[in-house]
Amino acid sequence: MNNALPFEDLEAGRARVAVSFGGQDLHLPEGANLAAALLGAGITTFRHTPASGAPRGPFCMMGACFDCLVEVDGVTRQACMMEVSDGLVLDMPQAGER
């Protein structure tokens, strides 16, 4: 367990699957909430804003703020409304893209 990370996972024993985020290989708990799993893996910045390029991460965790957007197969989706599945390939939405 890495105590330096901002978040600790109480369900750390869950089976893990391979996911990549912006080219980084991660092993995340299968079926977990995607935004929670990324935070648990130490990822705090999910995207940059189209207006100023400022970094953003999950804010509401209930599908209302759209700050947790990630890109999956070219479509931007709310990470807090998705579950972790094997082989998921995620990217940061391109800065400047609305």
């Binding site: 978040f7 996972d9 109480l10 929670a36 799993a37 935070l39 648990g40 209930m62």
Partner: peptide, 12 residues
């Protein structure tokens, strides 16, 4: 929600 649904806790 992180705690309830995912068991993910903020340390600091």
């Amino acid at each position: 929600i992180l705690l309830k649904q995912s068991g993910v806790m903020a340390r600091r």
